[in-house]
Write a protein that binds this DNA or RNA. Structure first.
Lengths: 210, 210
DNA sequence: GCTATTAGTAAGTAATCAATTACAATCTTA
DNA sequence: TAAGATTGTAATTGATTACTTACTAATAGC
């Protein structure tokens, strides 16, 4: 007789590690939106994927590594946001980035939730530093474009371009909070369309922007 | 002989319930800043106050009640923020509110942390609704003043006053995030002083503002 | 086709959480 | 001053947490 201890792996689909890691990241995004960042436990992740809790640790050594993978994903999305058409004028680039942000928030409402959550900041100094670096990098790119816009006569910023960049990012973050965390802005894309002209006025740019 | 089971209440200062409730709220603010919102446990609160964990539940029936008390405190601070001099012009009122926000963030960096944390939103629908209501209320007041500003010829908002109000609150929230959560803005008051002129340009107001 | 690696389970770990209980000391007040 | 309400302790509860271990089945490479 064979050892009839149990009959595991009944109908479970076995997948590659790379697949599972991606799936875990997407599951984290889904859970952040559905149940909140604090409710993202390894058990919740495993349950959402139809696996047992221990399986999660086959693919990540600990929870911090999961968060790091989520940050990898987030960084890739942010890189996409900051890839406007190269032939665009500086102000148009800025506008495209703003719109891409709103599209990102509409597509993945979990992103601001993760960004704002203390979980990604206080308990993990390295992740906190990475998030700092990411935002600083975005600010720098925007500041460069705004500088070019002033030089090209496309805008006439009263303050420094760096401050104009900080203002735009602050607006974006505020909108992200209002739409994705607080839920008082139904459609970030529509809200952005109404708000961006005000920013153009702030930097003394024309309203058109093709 | 007396029963020498233990000798409790050795040197502990016994205080009134109202005192303790206030102390707990302030302790929550301190812990939110020092260790992060997620690290605010009843044990941490009690330890910070020099009490045992059970003592916390003498003053609040459960943790949600603690959060609710924190929201009460926050609501009172917000009411102070929205109390400018009545003789001020509309735009000056808006400016005063902006500056009061920055002062609040400088004095209590834990406030944005709490506001942004999922803890106050997802697990407690009632607290979430309260936060929504508070922000909406702030937005409404700002929108009214901006409307008055336009009528008085103090500003010429391109979009609706409601949108101009939403823009200002978004900026405030973004700055709160950058300074108190992300930590890339050292002095929110100084940053605000540099950014507010850009907002004045956005709503077509003069730069002076006494 | 055999073997090593990988992806899974099941069960268990110690730690920590919010909340409860039984009891004691300290106020309040009648 | 006696009685009742209040503020505290100490110990414990059951649930949940991230993470580990021992074992098993599927896959990939030679």
């Amino acid at each position: 007789m064979t050892s009839n201890v149990v009959t595991p792996m009944a109908s479970t689909l076995r997948r590659s590690g790379e697949d599972r890691r991606q799936e875990i990241v997407l599951t984290v995004l889904a859970l952040a939106q559905a149940r909140g960042v604090e409710a993202i436990t390894t058990q919740a992740i495993a349950g959402h994927m139809g696996l047992t809790q221990g399986a999660v640790f086959r693919h990540f050594p600990n929870k911090e590594a999961i968060w790091a993978a989520v940050l990898d994903w987030l960084q890739a999305r942010l890189a996409e946001v900051f890839t406007p058409r190269p032939e665009a004028t500086p102000v148009t680039k800025v506008k495209c980035v703003f719109e891409a942000y709103m599209d990102l928030f509409a597509a993945y409402p979990a992103v601001p939730r993760l960004f704002f959550s203390d979980t990604l900041h206080h308990p993990y100094p390295q992740l906190h530093a990475r998030l700092q670096k990411m935002v600083r990098g975005c600010e720098d790119i925007l500041a460069r474009w705004l500088d070019e816009a002033v030089e090209a006569g496309e805008a006439r910023v009263g303050a420094s371009p760096a401050m104009a960049a900080k203002l735009l990012l602050a607006c974006i973050q505020g909108l992200a909070f209002q739409s994705c965390v607080l839920g008082i802005v139904a459609d970030p894309v529509a809200a952005g369309r109404q708000l961006f002209p005000l920013y153009l006025a702030a930097i003394g740019a024309a309203k058109e922007c093709p």
